[in-house]
């Protein structure tokens, strides 16, 4: 699966479609948002890609604990890293979009909060892994934390919007995007194009990193140079 070509081509086709249709297709005319509503195809898709990558990472953590196969630990780590990259991109693009529509880079919107919490949790995962040198221990404890953190993150994302809404009664006055704002014209670009396209790109880059990590490890087994190789892998 990892080395097959068809899904990589599919990824390219979907993203090209997203870029072309995303700019040529017409969108609902909303006050304040105006043309920036097209950011949906790029910014919101980052979050979907991030969540998919984190979910895949947890699945591999579970598989690691069940099988103790070292390969799955590399998978879990690299999927987390990929998710963090998409998370940072999503967060940055969200801030930029928010600055020119809601008026500030940071407006303590529940979605922004949830995103920051997710990023902090997974950055802590990397810190935790780096605090250990023993490979088996690092893999096992990392997997345990990954599962625990993911299980805590899901209710967090569900709870926070409900608490924040009640903090600001009268509903947010800002034109936050929700599913009601997206009409059929946008949906045909967003769901079949942007979300799977960006997700596949994330998976693609992650699989490349996984293959590289496995190669590095094999090379290390052939020519052991423990300190240097470990430094390289942690970099």
């Amino acid at each position: 699966m990892i080395r097959q070509k068809w899904w990589k081509i599919l990824c390219g086709v979907l993203l090209v479609y997203t870029f072309i249709a995303g700019f040529l297709g017409s969108v609902p005319a909303k006050p304040i948002l105006n043309e920036t509503i097209r950011n949906l195809y790029f910014h919101v898709a980052m979050w979907f890609a991030m969540m998919v990558l984190f979910t895949v990472s947890v699945i591999y953590s579970v598989r690691y604990l069940r099988t103790n196969n070292h390969k799955y630990d590399i998978y879990a780590l690299e999927y987390t890293r990929g998710g963090i990259v998409f998370g940072i991109l999503g967060f940055t693009t969200g801030s930029i979009w928010a600055r020119w529509t809601w008026g500030a880079f940071w407006s303590s919107d529940p979605k922004q909060l949830g995103a920051v919490i997710a990023l902090l949790i997974y950055l802590a995962y990397l810190v935790l892994r780096n605090s250990m040198t023993d490979m088996d221990k690092r893999a096992r404890i990392g997997a345990v934390y990954n599962i625990f953190a993911f299980a805590m993150l899901m209710p967090t994302i569900w709870i926070i919007p409900r608490l924040m809404e009640s903090l600001h009664p009268g509903g947010m006055g800002n034109p936050a995007l929700d599913t009601h704002d997206i009409d059929a014209r946008m949906r045909v670009v967003f769901w079949p194009g942007a979300v799977p396209g960006w997700t596949l790109l994330g998976v693609w880059i992650t699989t490349l990193r996984i293959r590289l990590a496995i190669l590095t490890e094999k090379k290390e087994d052939l020519h052991p140079a423990p300190n240097q190789a470990r430094k390289l892998r942690n970099a």
């Binding site: 919490i117 935790l128 934390y145 209710p155 967090t156």
Partner: peptide, 23 residues
């Protein structure tokens, strides 16, 4: 328990815990 296994370090616990405790 995680922090104790990783490293005998209470600071690690805070790093791991603060984002998780927010909800």
């Amino acid at each position: 328990a995680i922090a104790a296994r990783a490293q005998q370090n209470a600071a690690l616990m805070a790093i791991l815990g603060f984002p998780l405790i927010i909800p």
